[in-house]
């Protein structure tokens, strides 16, 4: 525990935090641009060149809007709700390996906040406490629509968490480790998990959509039935926190998909290029970012293409559609793994 190590970790934490926030900020613009493209219109283009200042304009608008709190709201919990949602959204970035190591002055610096040996379980824990922010916010606003929205959100998250965990368990079985860094380094070159785990990947992707409350699973904020969902009574920057954390969640979920199934910072022919270790690490980080942006685009692509599920369809699909597939995938993988590994 020397001083450089602590300083490096502090700097790295600040960079990761800034990166998540900036990416989420521009994801809001990208979403509207993509929507414009899909609906054959231009999208926002007034603020700055190509509308590049639009997120700043939106932020300023949210800051200066009137702060309104319902008269009978539980004041502490009303404020705690958006704070918790934001906190939980940012928490899981701690265990994602953003790149290989950098060697500066003979010292090795890992491009990961914490390489804990329970990284996968840590993400489970963060996902499972993600429900609190939404539930507390919806309940504290003292509004029936908000309560309905939060109950919907919570039951949807709990239902899809199971299938999601099952598909990650399969990855843990094949790689034999709970550390995300280890899982990534086993996918060196092109040995990506998506080729051995296609069913698990599809299940995970669908669950990631549901966990982020994104379309076609955006029932918690279904404007046509509920006025606005769990954040109906929120205004100003508190509403901003809820909306913004959705984009951070999307970014983190894309990072998890890339890490677990698409090799993380690995890219093909990384040994044949003949570059030094540091350059490979830097290119690896950029490749990871490219993968993440692709999946963020997939999130938007699906949102502007598919219609919304009905609530009973959503529940039936989660429990009777995805769960059996996740279980079958796990059992078959376990069977073949024992067959090959042990040679029965």
């Amino acid at each position: 525990m020397n001083i450089d190590f602590i300083l490096y970790k502090l700097l790295f934490a600040v960079i990761i935090l800034m990166l998540s926030l900036v990416v989420a900020m521009y994801a809001t613009l990208a979403e509207r641009k993509v929507a414009g493209f899909f609906q054959d219109r231009l999208g926002p283009n007034r603020a700055g060149i190509f509308g590049l200042l639009q997120p700043v304009a939106d932020g300023v608008k949210l800051f200066f809007k009137e702060e309104f709190m319902p008269a009978k709201a539980d004041k502490v919990l009303y404020i705690l709700g958006p704070c918790l949602t934001m906190l939980v959204a940012l928490l899981s970035s701690a265990v994602i390996p953003w790149g290989d190591t950098l060697i500066i002055g003979g010292k090795e610096f890992a491009l990961q906040m914490a390489d804990v040996n329970i990284g996968v379980l840590y993400t489970f824990a963060v996902v499972s406490i993600g429900v609190y922010g939404v539930m507390i916010g919806g309940w504290a606003s003292n509004n029936k629509y908000a309560l309905m929205g939060s109950v919907r959100a919570a039951s949807q998250m709990i239902s899809y968490e199971l299938a999601m965990s099952m598909s990650i368990v399969t990855i843990v079985m094949t790689s034999g480790s709970l550390s995300l860094n280890e899982i990534v380094s086993q996918q060196h070159g092109m040995n990506w998990n998506v080729f051995t785990q296609p069913i698990g990947f599809v299940v995970f992707l669908i669950c990631a959509f549901a966990e982020c409350n994104r379309s076609p699973f955006d029932l918690p904020e279904c404007e046509t039935e509920l006025i606005g969902g769990y954040h109906t009574e929120y205004s100003s920057m508190k509403l901003g926190f809820y909306l913004f954390s959705e984009y951070i969640n999307m970014f983190i979920a894309s990072a998890m998909i890339s890490t677990l199934y698409f090799g993380g910072y690995n890219f093909p022919f990384m040994n044949e290029l003949g570059l030094s270790h540091n350059w490979i690490s830097i290119i690896g980080t950029l490749v990871l970012m490219a993968k993440i942006f692709f999946f963020v685009f997939v999130f938007m692509w699906v949102r502007w293409t598919l219609p919304r599920f009905r609530y009973d369809q959503l529940m039936r699909f989660g429990w009777k559609g995805l769960m059996p597939w996740a279980f079958i995938n796990m059992i078959v993988t376990g069977f073949f793994y024992m067959l090959i590994k042990r040679g029965f």
């Binding site: 329970i118 824990a125 499972s128 429900v131 539930m135 109950v151 039951s155 709990i158």
Partner: peptide, 22 residues
Amino acid sequence: AVVHIIVYAGAIMVLFLFTVML
């Protein structure tokens, strides 16, 4: 520690919260 959070904070207490809210 992590299993404690997943099981108690993530599952059981959410169920409690649900019941109390409804």
